[in-house]
Design a protein around this nucleic acid. Sequence first.
DNA 1: CGTGTGGTTGAACAATGTCAAGCTCTGTGG
DNA 2: CCACAGAGCTTGACATTGTTCAACCACACG
Lengths: 250, 250
Amino acid sequence: MGKAAAMHGQRTPCQQCPLRSLPHFREFGREELSFISSFKKGEMLVDAGATVFLEGSHSAHLFTILSGWGFRYKTLEDGRRQILNYVMPGDLIGLQGSIMGEMQHSTEALSPVSLCVFERTDLMTLYNSHPSLAFDLTWIAAREERILDEHLLSIGRRSALERAAYLIAYLHQRASALHLFNGSKVIPITQQHVADTLGLSVVHTNKTLKKLAERGLIVWQERGCAVRDAKALADVAGWDGLDSGKRPFI
Amino acid sequence: MGKAAAMHGQRTPCQQCPLRSLPHFREFGREELSFISSFKKGEMLVDAGATVFLEGSHSAHLFTILSGWGFRYKTLEDGRRQILNYVMPGDLIGLQGSIMGEMQHSTEALSPVSLCVFERTDLMTLYNSHPSLAFDLTWIAAREERILDEHLLSIGRRSALERAAYLIAYLHQRASALHLFNGSKVIPITQQHVADTLGLSVVHTNKTLKKLAERGLIVWQERGCAVRDAKALADVAGWDGLDSGKRPFI
DNA sequence: CGTGTGGTTGAACAATGTCAAGCTCTGTGG
DNA sequence: CCACAGAGCTTGACATTGTTCAACCACACG
């Protein structure tokens, strides 16, 4: 478990944020952007495997992912782990803790991750001065809730094969919308991550993924999963896909 | 599946809302209360078994539960149902749909339910004029997210017995905080509801609940579940319990 | 060269699902 | 008052799904 974390002053001003130009995100006004730019206190880099938030901590910060992949998880006392969701560029992390106090889940980097750093004490200023951004924060929380609803349906009621298909289709769709598949085209997770997301053992996960591979829907390769037929995956899972509309991000 | 729904003009003004006096909720300023009172457009009553929201709909309203029990759920095409969470007095429902458009889950009443009616078009006014209430809305969404995180951990990684214990401890703790156990002391759900919440079959749920009953932790009775030892239930599940602090409600 | 991490496999076993039947209420209509 | 129907709970036998254990393999990295 790597731990390296480097803090830097602000590098990219928000006005030139590479994520802003993606069609996936809603456009922001000049004033909103300049406020967000002042809200941002710097950037942070963490290694793959590093822990960004630890369950039980009280972080003074919250972050937006600039680049890289990570995941949120909880564990039981005896070590059983459940991955709750994955985080990708544009995702705000630590909002739950900032608003309610203590962090009740951990967050770990799957790849090297760079993050924009915000301070939780500035949140109230945002609510006071920028209602549209305040609305966006609620939007972001509601979106996460909606995704968790679908995950719950998946783990509770879908078979192992359906679950695996759903998970990979979901990750693929999100990453595609962010144009994340230019270089590697590979989702950077291990089968252990898949198992801990689906609530299955690694062994059974392996056998399940193999079935998807035999049908030509995915290929498992060095450090990750490559999608061959996203549509068929969604079909296997009986999943409609994510909203296609634009979404806000801070 | 009952469908009766009656709309009324406002009966109880928010200043005299019986829920406000519970120690469970944060106190509101006079100004906040008067705004909320204007935000409220009336009250609605629905029968047990009635559907409040249907997946796929675009409701013009959102509601706060005044009294009664209900639950949110999603279904797969072939009818498999997953209950996502339960709703009780003080809970705001329909926020997800109001903010993001279409409803992606359904909500059904478990008992007769009375609701305060709000209009989604008024939401923006709230954000513009009352930052503290805007913050509360994000708080409410973050709280739901946190609860879903715990449910996901439960379904994904706890055994059937642990899951059942967690669910009942959770419902009991929430209802206790709301002083809901004056009359019946019974959680008004069927074993089918428990099964659909835990992601188990009814048969296995029945056998699992029987084990909890044999240990003296619960008693299953006419139309519901009575808790005998809440502490022991939480212990079986290895669950810490909910936050004890005050929370906002609209 | 070792060593470690992640993937693969088969066999034995445990957990959970399915099927089918019966039971106990409660409410309803004759 | 009785007969009946439906909903929800209970139970046992059996099928299926998923877990655990125990290897072994392949590759990357120091």
